[in-house]
């Protein structure tokens, strides 16, 4: 219990026109913890994720981020250039659709190599070796290094996107329905992979999902959102096995048991 939280979200709020998308959401996450956010479409989960990612500016509240040097910055108050630098170094983002997180016109190796180069690496051979090592880590044959992502299956593309997001070893990874469009068997493999990577790297993860089964297997903690607010939160199994809020009870009781 010695380290500091990363990030610390403090009363974040966002309004789109008449609609209050996110109302005063706060939480602190610690390295190695996976927090799942569940809730119906329009509950504000993706807006919240985008604010934490520095992609959407909040109307109020703070996203406190402790730099490796120990200084605490508020993402919401950073100048644009500093924000972009911090996000590139410290925050990985995994989209539901791998096509949103990959560059389809360049090879698998380049997809992994680009973030390393953006972080300052210049030696071609070592970048290529790092890319091959990450392909193996996400269970893709390194012989596919020079292939275009379009020739990969959906599950492989998603694993490639994860490699691209994690290769610079960000300390916070945000995932928006990472197993959403995948077959169940492919999902299981991805869940296992994600869990091992999170444990090995000791990163903080915020995971938006509508799949309570995914939340149970992957997340330590769970937050339930409805109409922009957190209606219930706790250790994942607490919230799923002993839901208190009427909306959470509805959500849990609506799941079909396989």
């Amino acid at each position: 219990m010695s380290e500091a939280p990363l990030p610390e979200i403090d009363r974040l709020a966002k309004r789109y026109g008449e609609r209050q998308a996110v109302r005063g959401v706060s939480f602190a996450l610690w390295p190695g913890e996976v927090l799942a956010i569940v809730g119906e479409s329009g509950s504000g989960k993706t807006t919240l994720l985008n604010m934490i990612a520095g992609r959407v500016a909040p109307d109020a509240g703070a996203v406190r981020f402790r730099s490796a040097a120990g200084a605490v910055v508020d993402l919401a108050a950073l100048p644009e250039a500093d924000l972009r630098r911090l996000v590139r170094r410290e925050i990985g983002f995994v989209h539901q659709n791998p096509r949103d997180g990959l560059r389809l016109s360049v090879s698998a190796g380049a997809n992994i190599g680009e973030p390393i180069m953006a972080a300052g690496a210049r030696h071609y051979g070592s970048i290529r070796r790092a890319a091959a090592a990450w392909l193996e880590r996400v269970e893709i044959d390194p012989a596919r290094l020079d292939d275009l992502p379009a020739t990969f299956s959906g599950g492989m593309q998603q694993r490639l996107q994860i490699a691209r997001a994690l290769v610079t070893e960000p300390r916070l990874v945000l995932m928006d329905e990472p197993t959403g469009g995948l077959d169940v068997s492919v999902q299981a493999r991805l869940l296992d992979l994600l869990r091992r990577l999170v444990a090995d790297l000791g990163i903080s993860v915020v995971l938006v999902t509508h799949d309570l089964g995914v939340a149970r297997l992957l997340a330590h903690r769970l937050m339930v959102m409805q109409q922009g607010q957190v209606v219930e939160s706790g250790v994942t199994d607490q919230v799923l096995d002993d839901p208190h809020h009427p909306y959470t009870q509805l959500l849990v009781s609506s799941v079909l048991a396989a």
């Binding site: 913890e33 299981a188 296992d192 869990r195 149970r216 297997l217 330590h220 250790v235």
Partner: peptide
């Protein structure tokens, strides 16, 4: 979560784990 990791173990009636 820390208490569960270090101090309290629980044997449930069902095994619930990531497939594969």
């Amino acid at each position: 979560l820390e208490i569960r990791r270090e101090t309290i173990g629980y044997v449930s009636q069902f095994l619930r784990v990531i497939p594969r």
